[in-house]
C-alpha cells in the first residue's frame, strides 16, 4: 500500500472553541490507482490533502507513505518527501512568475535531482506546450498555466500525485481536456493520484471515490 491514513484527527482553533475538521479518518491508496476525494466546501478535503503532502500535521493519527509514518517528521524530512515522493498540483497553479515555461516545467525535477530532458520534451509535447516554452506564466491562458503546473509535477516522476481542484479555475471543456491529460500521464508514470474535487462528474472518472462530510468519510 502506497498511502495509508489511520484515525486522523485535525482541529482548527476558532473563536467558539476548536473546530473538528477531520474526525477519525481511515484511508488507503495503492500505487498506480486514482482516488477522488469529494465533499462540500469546508468539509475538510483540502486539509486532508495538505496533511498527506506534509504541509500540515494532524492532531492525532498516522499517515504512512511508502511504509513510513510521516507524522512527526521535521521540516527538512517533509521537504525531502515533497521533493522526491509527492507531487502537488494546485488550483491556483502556483507557477513561478519570473521563470519561463521551460524552466517552470523542469523546476521540480531539478529540485529533486532527477532532471530528464527527454521526458520533459515528451511532457511538453503531450501537454501542448512545445510552442510556448519561452513564454512567461503571465503570458499564458489559465488552461495553459494549469498544464504547465501538471507538467512540472509529473516531470519529477512522483510516486503520489496530490491534486487540489486542478480544474477548479478552468471552464468545463478546458478542465476536461486538462484532466484527460493528467490521468493518462499519471497512468503512464505508474503514480497514484489523490484528487480533491467537488465535481461528481470528474470524480466518477477516477478508479475510486470517497466522500467527506463534516470531517468524516461517508
Amino acid at each position: 500500500m502506497l498511502l495509508r491514513l489511520h484515525q486522523i484527527d485535525k482541529f482548527y482553533p476558532t473563536g467558539e472553541g476548536p473546530l473538528h475538521v477531520l474526525n477519525g479518518i481511515d484511508l488507503s491508496l495503492e500505487a498506480g490507482k486514482s482516488l477522488a476525494l469529494t465533499g462540500e466546501s469546508g468539509s475538510g478535503k483540502s486539509t486532508l490533502l495538505h496533511l498527506v503532502a506534509g504541509l500540515d500535521s494532524p492532531d492525532a493519527g498516522e499517515i504512512h507513505l511508502g511504509g513510513t509514518n510521516i507524522v512527526g517528521l521535521n521540516d527538512t524530512a517533509l521537504a525531502a518527501l515533497r521533493r522526491g515522493t509527492v507531487g502537488l498540483v494546485f488550483q491556483q497553479f502556483n507557477l513561478i512568475p519570473s521563470l519561463d515555461v521551460a524552466a517552470n516545467l523542469a523546476f521540480q525535477a531539478r529540485l529533486a535531482g532527477r532532471p530528464d530532458p527527454a521526458w520533459l520534451k515528451v511532457l511538453a509535447k503531450r501537454l501542448g506546450l512545445a510552442q510556448v516554452l519561452t513564454r512567461y506564466p503571465e503570458q499564458l491562458s489559465a488552461g495553459q498555466q494549469q498544464r504547465v503546473a501538471i507538467g512540472r509535477t509529473l516531470a519529477a516522476r512522483p510516486r503520489l500525485v496530490l491534486a487540489d481542484e486542478p480544474t477548479g479555475n478552468l471552464d468545463e471543456a478546458t478542465g476536461d481536456a486538462v484532466l484527460d491529460l493528467m490521468l493518462s500521464l499519471v497512468a503512464e508514470t505508474g503514480a497514484a493520484l489523490l484528487m480533491v474535487t467537488h465535481s461528481n462528474r470528474l470524480a466518477n472518472r477516477l478508479n475510486a471515490r470517497v466522500h467527506l462530510h463534516a470531517g468524516r468519510l461517508v
Binding site: L55, D75, T76, A79, N94, L95, Q108, A112
Partner: peptide
C-alpha cells in the same frame, strides 16, 4: 507566493 510554492515543492525553510 514563490516562497510558498518553493516550500510546497520541497525546498526546506532553512
Amino acid at each position: 507566493p514563490v516562497f510558498r510554492t518553493l516550500r510546497a515543492l520541497g525546498l526546506p525553510a532553512r
